[in-house]
Design a protein around this nucleic acid. Structure first.
Lengths: 239, 239
DNA sequence: CGATACTACTTGTCTATACAAGTATAGATG
DNA sequence: CATCTATACTTGTATAGACAAGTAGTATCG
């Protein structure tokens, strides 16, 4: 018999068999896949098991199914070429493979009309503001600045950022519902140039993250030292 | 009876009921969820249906399950704060909300020792090389440069890039298995400065994408005009 | 010829049951 | 007291059957 004796569940073996046929070229894009009842006969199993195999392949984006018609090999959509950036802040914190130490530079509650307006607040309302410098072996590599809506995290300034990072704290008190990232190349402010020891004119990478939580906005902006590339690695979901 | 008469499948109603309990605070992080057999009684259904509801909630990251123990409300992991960048090339092509026109600047087959080595080729082997300029209303906003391993796409240079974009063509002939993105702020080469009409010293954003397909490498590098921010929008998967 | 009805086939959902495998706890045993 | 054991409970997988709903093609009727 060709049915191998692998130590896998049956539905896994059915999945693997179909994926093999796709990757070896036996089944091409748009080709019809054996129906559940056919698989039932081929693998001497029940329809529910064949159904599970095909359902999971659908979730993985390898096949598409149509009630009353059949199952077909999916075309590799551009959407399938999807990169997952897991926790950008974490990736940056682990820049260079080292856990960098942090220095709290500033922690204040202050009214700032322009920022407040961007957060949907009254221009006289105070906003929490923090700046943290990230060091990697005595060299400052990042400058992260946060503007927090006090309504999102009223106790933000009271936290001890030696025991909990701002990211972790904010994630705990305010579930992020939506986010927007802006990546930008820029010549940064003199104040930051000084802190990061950047020569004037050297291009910096800026990453701004705006998050929404219950209609409230927080912004998180990182300046990364020039020369330090920001590398994102990702596997594709269709792995 | 409290069981509502929504026009949904039963397993969907079970899922919704549990999600409601989590979001209303009735069930908190770490709390135990009714077991499959309990749900069987609560919803007057079979265990397979309850199992499907819990299985899908596990896939969605709302609960965690342990054989022999039970099912529990998952803690919102930082990993859940996951941004999906769909088809970076497409996002960039739609920069500013306009579909930009493309101009083919260069298309050649040439040996380039350094590049070839990075692709795992012999330094004398030829490499395909193409440069495309992206215009948006008469202003050049992007400069994209590709180095393609001829083994990946032997007919790459023969394509008519007016009818199919390089990205689309390559996706068709070579399924991408893994990718790496490097984002960098830089002062670009004079040759590119000229094409994009950038003043010397203006910081540019460079995005390099290396993809692997069957052990073979392709690189794709974009230079984006300064001032044009590269905005990524994404919804969180747990939304 | 054109419209309709029927049939065969597909996927989607659901039931009732079964056994395997992992865990926790109470109780018996040393 | 410590340790082993039986048991009850959990999830994971699998089976055999059922009906619903959607599709495509065929046969039939006007």
């Amino acid at each position: 018999m060709s049915v191998s004796e692998q130590p896998f569940a049956l539905f896994e073996r059915i999945k693997k068999s179909i994926v093999n046929d796709i990757e070896s070229g036996k089944l091409k894009q748009g080709d019809k896949i054996p129906s559940e009842t056919e698989l039932t006969r081929m693998f001497n199993t029940s329809r529910m098991t064949a159904n599970r195999a095909l359902k999971e392949l659908t979730e993985e984006g390898r096949i598409v199914r149509a009630q009353g018609v059949g199952s077909f090999v999916a075309r590799p959509k551009p959407e399938a070429a999807l990169l997952e950036i897991k926790s950008i802040a974490k990736e940056i914190a682990e820049w260079g493979g080292y856990h960098s130490s942090e220095i709290l530079v500033l922690r204040e509650e202050k009214a700032n009309g322009e920022i407040a307006k961007k957060m949907g607040l009254n221009s006289m309302d105070p906003v929490f503001h923090s700046i943290i410098l990230h060091k990697d072996r005595d060299i400052c590599v990042q400058h992260s600045e946060r503007f927090i809506n006090p309504k999102v995290a009223p106790d933000y300034l009271k936290q001890d950022f030696n025991t909990i990072t701002p990211s972790e704290y904010l994630l705990e008190v305010a579930p992020v519902q939506q986010a927007e990232h802006i990546i930008e190349a820029m010549n940064c402010r003199k104040e930051i140039q000084k802190r990061l020891k950047i020569k004037p004119g050297e291009p910096c990478l800026s990453l701004t993250r705006r998050t929404w939580s219950f209609d409230m906005v927080a912004t998180y902006s990182i300046i990364i030292s020039p020369g330090s590339r920001y590398k994102l690695k990702g596997k594709f979901t269709r792995g």
